[in-house]
Design a protein around this nucleic acid. Structure first.
Lengths: 339, 339
DNA sequence: TTGAAAGCGCTAACAT
DNA sequence: ATGTTAGCGCTTTCAA
């Protein structure tokens, strides 16, 4: 079998407790003793068993991350923020994709709790009562990240999606756009609905009504969106949108290309605004104006908040709303008074 | 404290061993007993402690994944392949980004071994003797994924990068391109060097020499690549490349845009071939011809291979080379004899 | 089919 | 500064 703390103790002529102290950097060890123990550890190639330590100490230094899909640029970037902070605080992260599937989410939460994670980060989903119940019986802290929870029951880090969408649409309306379309992935997603709410509000604020045919609900991927847009652009000029607010950058890029394919110009004939400001926003021509969602920061701040809960440090706010803004690029016409 | 197997046993009037059997689905339990135990488990909201189980059984059902950067599309997609298969076999995954930093890699490997992972997947790095030593003393299986290990000492799943690059460059040469440039991220990366080797070989095979100025070593990101390309395209027409082979899709997109910015046409003046065939390859105009690296499959196959090692199942090959191919799109001119 | 008991490798009082 | 000794919550022989 492999080398244990006991083997080290015996060989070094000290007790297990002393070896444990050395491993854990306790100051209560005479330097000569420490040196001796360290030497034996080296010789034997001893490696502490974190599982045994976790059982004895009830601290696993592990946190669980549940997200819809690790292969999505948005969540991958967010995860990187989580990771970097987790690293700073010496936590490892257990990651699982849920495909935004409720049953899978619930089973993942259960599995993470069995693994004695010290905290859970739940990303981008939709909470129902089962989630809430599980989280409440968890007796480890939970932080929602980029997740819409109308109840505001759990600690959460997010941007104000509705407000962000409002700002984008209002910007488009303010500059005289007659018909602003909303290109979105399915509205059963709470994240899509939050954006939609902002869209509706912005229109209402200016005395406009939502025109059914301008709300294009499609799939989250480029190909499908491209086709959906083609239909929309085939309309006669007086019904065709003059601007498009897309729920993601990928959708926005599809919009740009669809407009171009229709022989029209972005931004002269149709303006386009994306969402998230992912790397790809700069990789299209014209480059995309996009609502910035600070993905890395969302992850980093959430993880930091979680460490505070774990260490029982005081927390200013349990509902952290990060600022959003619009990054203006060439898919919208230059703003007045802005070079 | 939380409820343990002992509490369940007492309440159900059976021994801990019986409860353990029920939890683990052992067939040697009378149905009535099982039912009784299950009922108590339900009542008490008992949740098995996976850490204790791991210590007692020496099986953690956890595997460690070390990769350069989870926020990279390439590795995120690959990770999804790993996850799905891990899931099928009931493993959870511990993920850590190394930033391709040697020290970080080594410390991560150590940390994963301390955590008693049952196997390690090492992605996209470069192995030196320290890695090898660690892996050899690990006594858990290790599989390299999309990693260049000239020694071929460890089990590995990859594509033949050199050959893939060769194929791409040869394709460009075969259709009469006078000057094929290689646009790459830094050549200290083994993955870049492997592609470079293929580039050199393809040129050599056709009696061409590598022209220094056509090898553009830049950073892996769009912005930097765009600038690098601008320099290259500012050359007089007779020195300017007629085709560009890029080490990634992101670089290829930068190449496309740089060509267009220079007032030239892709593919009429300059053909462009990308690498990896990520989602974004289809999100540029013209759409990118790209060397397909089956990211998801690399991950899935590697994870499957790892389970075989863990379960000591027979393995056909320890060095799995997945097929590559070129996806032809509009950034290269139509091929002769192809509609 | 069930139970008793000995660990798994470590930490954490408590003593000394 | 160091040692002794119980556990941590489970699995796993071995017996019955």
């Amino acid at each position: 079998m492999s080398v244990t703390i006991y083997d080290v103790a015996k060989r070094a002529g000290v007790s297990m407790a002393t070896v444990s102290r050395v491993i854990n950097g306790s100051p209560n060890v005479r330097p000569t003793t420490r040196k001796k123990v360290l030497k034996v550890i080296e010789e034997l190639g001893y490696r502490p068993n974190a599982v045994a330590r976790g059982l004895a100490s009830r601290r696993t230094t592990t946190i669980g991350v549940i997200l819809p899909d690790i292969s999505s640029v948005f969540f991958a970037e967010l995860t990187r923020g989580i990771e970097d902070i987790a690293n700073m605080y010496d936590y490892d992260i257990l990651i699982s994709s849920s495909d935004a599937n409720r049953e899978k989410e619930l089973s993942l939460i259960g599995s993470m709790l069995e693994r004695q994670v010290e905290g859970i980060l739940f990303l981008g989903g939709h909470l129902d009562d089962a989630h809430r119940r599980l989280f409440k019986t968890a007796n480890v802290p939970v932080v929602l990240v980029a997740t819409e929870d109308p109840e505001r029951e759990f600690a959460s880090v997010r941007i104000d999606l509705g407000r962000a969408a409002y700002d984008a649409v209002d910007f488009l309306l303010a500059r005289g756009n007659e018909r602003v379309a909303f290109l979105t992935y399915p509205l059963y997603s709470p994240m899509a609905r939050a954006r939609y709410a902002g869209y509706v509000e912005a229109l209402g604020e200016r005395g406009r009504r939502v025109e059914e045919h301008l709300v294009m609900e499609t799939h989250p991927y480029y190909e499908r969106a491209l086709k959906a847009m083609a239909t929309l652009l085939a309309l006669p000029a007086e019904k065709r949108p003059t601007a498009i607010f897309a729920a993601s950058d990928e959708l926005a890029i599809a919009a740009v290309h669809a407009v171009q394919d229709a022989g029209l110009s972005v931004p002269d004939d149709v303006e386009v605004v994306g969402f998230d400001n992912t790397r790809i926003a700069q990789m299209v021509r014209p480059m995309l104006t996009s609502v910035v969602q600070p993905m890395y920061d969302l992850g980093a701040v959430a993880m930091r908040l979680l460490t505070k809960f774990i260490r029982q440090e005081p927390v200013e706010s349990r509902d952290v709303v990060l600022p959003h803004r619009i990054e203006f690029r060439a898919s919208t016409r230059p703003r007045v008074g802005t070079p």
